[in-house]
Structure formats: structure tokens, C-alpha cells
Design a protein around this nucleic acid. Structure first.
Lengths: 227, 227
DNA sequence: CTAATTTCCGAATTATATTCGGAGAACACA
DNA sequence: TGTGTTCTCCGAATATAATTCGGAAATTAG
């Protein structure tokens, strides 16, 4: 593990150091994503990054630390991205639909990252006490905020526990993604976005929304890019 | 790996062999359940079982094979058990409630088994092509049958995809269990059974059930034996 | 240009899964 | 019961891969 320099670093230093660190992380995503934590080797990651095995230990404490570093870096970039996509969308259910679509789409485009997060890290026993967990919390927080917004605007039942509702959303989405990751990935993930959203909306919505309003909120249509 | 005997085995043989195999499996549940696959050692399992390391390889191909053998054996015993509990319950929603309760209760009482299945195996990349996966399918089949029954009796919307509905149930339950396993397990899992069931029922039920009938189906109360 | 510091990595070390070879137990059969 | 055969078990050897160590090369400071 590299010691922090004892003087103020100059910019070149910072840049070059993060260059190499990023290169390792990038190879780690690739190799962990393809082979899984167990079957990936430090030697394989080092070779992919074009460096010596021991160099990895200058930047990461050990193999598990490297694994857990992946989502910390990436999730930080993800949250501004999803927030950006969410802009201008009005109503909790429309936001939820967009969020689910965005998430499935992202994993479909970045299966290596998805594998690391959902197959390797989510069930890692040390996970809950890591920085990676904090990063994930910020991401899941978005769902929580959507549900609370729905309760405030009156479209989501006040009496449901927002944390339970989040578990329902997150659990279902992740379960669908995990199955996709473990299968041959031939089918599209995004196709689940709308039917799943419809089911969730039925679960959450206040009873007064039955009837006229219902059709527009839970239509069978594809995710509407105009919206 | 032990070779199959080339003559008909006598009963003593069968008994003794399965005795030792069961002892190894029992220690495997304990050690894998406590430490996880990665941190568990063959030496540790052998020691717990009171045998030599190499003996494990007489019964299991390798460490992963041992891990995957755990649910195969246990799930076989589970399915008759849950079917037994399900007897005499009428109506899809009442069955669903009972099933969720039973599942959460089982994991709360057998966290070692739950850890192995949900933290180690569910996200194992070879899982889908193993016998363990087949065993799990039989278990999840129960949920599918309940949903189909609901559609036939008219309480569950005909237009929803039964597989998606199952993903919603299974995903939510497993997500709640995984969080519980990773946390300190101080709180009770069973407390989630009824609120979760209520949410799921709201998601699945046909619209005609709104109003009078709704209260009895999705009440906060316990599983209704009269229906 | 020289000394100090930092970065990098080949080689040694360590941990642990897996295999090997054979001792001893159980068995088959006379 | 005696003897050859098969099965069960495991201590010791091997193999693989993570991690550490020590020093060479590169960079920086002055």
C-alpha cells in the first residue's frame, strides 16, 4: 500500500498516480466481470493492465479491497448521470418508470460492472462496513425519495413503509438482473422495465387512482422517450 | 472422488457412507455459513467433522462441489415440509401469505443454510448448470403455482406475466433476507411477512376485489383460515 | 548534478486447495 | 478362520495463487 507523500503533491503526481490506478480499476472491472472474484487472478489483472503483480498492492490493500474499490469509483459517476436523466420528469410514478428503465439499460450496456456489483459485492460479508456500501446507499436513496414524493403528492399510499416499498423495487430489479447475468444474456433486459413498473405501481398506488387516471400511469406501452 | 462400487452395495455400506457424507455436509453448512465460501477452509471443515482433509475429496469433487451439494440435500427435505404446511389453506393469497411466512421463518431459524444459499450460491456463476439450481427451481415452482391458482380462481389479474410476478415475490423476499443476513440479525425477519404480503397482493389482485372484499384479503391480520 | 524520495516489480514467501500413495478396515469366499 | 480383494481413510507431497520483500529504476528537490 502506497504511503501518502509527506509533502504537498504537485499536479503531475496526482494525475499520473490516478492514471495508473484507473488503469488497474479498468482491468479489474474487465477481469472480475468476466471471471468473477474467485476465478480472477491478480496476475491476470496485472497482465491486462500491463504492469507487474506487485504494483497492484501499491494501490490496493488486497484482492478484496480492489474488488470493493470498483463500485466506489463508478457509483460516484453514476448518480449525477441518473439525476441528469431524471430532470424534468414530473410525478413519482413517471420517475420510477424512468429510474427502472435507466438501471436496466445501464446494466445491459455495462454487464461487467453489473456482475461485480450484483454477483460479487452485494453478497460480500464485509460489504456493509465498506465505502462501497455507502456509495450504493446513495444510489438506492433515489428510490426512497421517489416513494416519499409519491406519498406527498398523494399518488402512493401513505400507510406503506417506504423502506419496505424500496425493498420491493430493488429486490425485484436486482433479482431480474441477476438471472440475466447468470443466463446467456441473449434476451433484452429492458423489456422488463415497463411490465415491472406497472406491477410496482399497482402495489403502491392509492385506491382513488383506480379508473380514469390508471390507464395513463400503468399503460402497457414502452418507456416513452418524449416524457 | 469415490468410485461407485462395482457390485450391489449392501445396506451397511450405504448407511455408513451416507453417515460420513452427512457429517461432512453438516460441518460444511456450519463453516460455510459462518465464514462464507472464500474464508472457509477445507481443513476447517475437515477438523469440524473430525476427519482428515483428504477424506472430503472422497465424497466431493472439490470445494465448490461441496458448497453446491448443501442445498441439493436440504431442499429435497424442504419441499415436503412446506407442502405439508400448505395443506388445508384455501385461496392463492392465503397460500402466498403462508409461504412467505414459512420461508422467512425457516431462514431465521437456519441462518447458516440461508447464508449458503443466498450469499454464496445464488450468485455463483456455475449455479445455473448445477443440480442445486434444479432443486431451487422446484422450490420456486411453488410460488408460480400459487400465482396460477390465483389467476384461475379470479383473484389475480389474468394479464400479468406469472414469471414476472414470481420475480417480484422472490426478489423482494430474498433481498430482505440478504440484508438481514449481512446485518447483525438482531431484528426479526418474520415481522416483514405480513406487510410484504399485503404489498404483493395489492400488486397482483384484480380490480373487482377493491372495496368490501379487499379488507379481508389484505388486512393487517394473520392468515385467514376461513377462506 | 546529486541526493532523496517515490514508483515499480521480480523473486521469495505463505496459505491453502488438491492429489498421491499407501496403511489399515471391511468384505468375499473358501 | 485364513487370505486375497476391495474400500475407506488420511499424512505427506504438490500446485496454484495471494501477498510480501528488497532493491532497481524513475522522478523530484535543491
Amino acid at each position: 500500500m502506497k504511503k501518502k507523500p509527506n509533502l504537498i503533491q504537485n499536479l503531475n503526481n496526482i494525475t499520473r498516480e490516478s492514471e495508473k490506478k484507473k488503469r488497474i480499476l479498468s482491468s479489474a472491472i474487465k477481469v472480475f466481470g468476466e471471471k468473477g472474484f474467485q476465478n480472477a487472478t491478480i496476475a491476470g489483472i496485472a497482465k491486462d493492465a500491463g504492469i507487474g503483480d506487485a504494483t497492484i498492492y501499491e494501490y490496493f490493500k488486497n484482492k478484496e479491497d480492489l474488488l470493493l474499490a470498483v463500485p466506489v469509483e463508478i457509483t460516484k459517476e453514476l448518480i449525477p448521470n441518473i439525476n441528469d436523466h431524471m430532470m424534468g420528469i414530473k410525478g413519482a410514478f413517471n420517475k420510477l418508470r424512468k429510474f427502472i428503465w435507466w438501471w436496466l439499460n445501464f446494466v445491459e450496456k455495462n454487464p461487467g460492472y453489473g456482475s461485480i456489483v450484483l454477483l460479487e459485492i452485494k453478497t460480500n460479508r464485509t460489504y456493509v462496513s465498506t465505502e462501497a456500501y455507502q456509495a450504493a446507499r446513495n444510489f438506492y436513496q433515489i428510490v426512497l425519495d421517489i416513494i416519499k414524493e409519491g406519498q406527498e403528492e398523494g399518488t402512493i399510499k401513505k400507510e406503506i413503509d417506504v423502506y419496505l416499498a424500496r425493498s420491493l423495487c430493488v429486490g425485484a430489479i436486482e433479482h431480474i438482473i441477476i438471472r440475466w447475468l447468470l443466463k446467456d444474456r441473449r434476451y433484452s433486459l429492458i423489456q422488463y422495465a415497463d411490465p415491472l413498473t406497472d406491477l410496482l405501481i399497482d402495489s403502491f398506488k392509492t385506491l382513488e387512482l383506480e379508473g380514469s387516471e390508471r390507464m395513463s400511469l400503468t399503460s402497457k406501452g414502452k418507456c416513452n422517450p418524449k416524457e
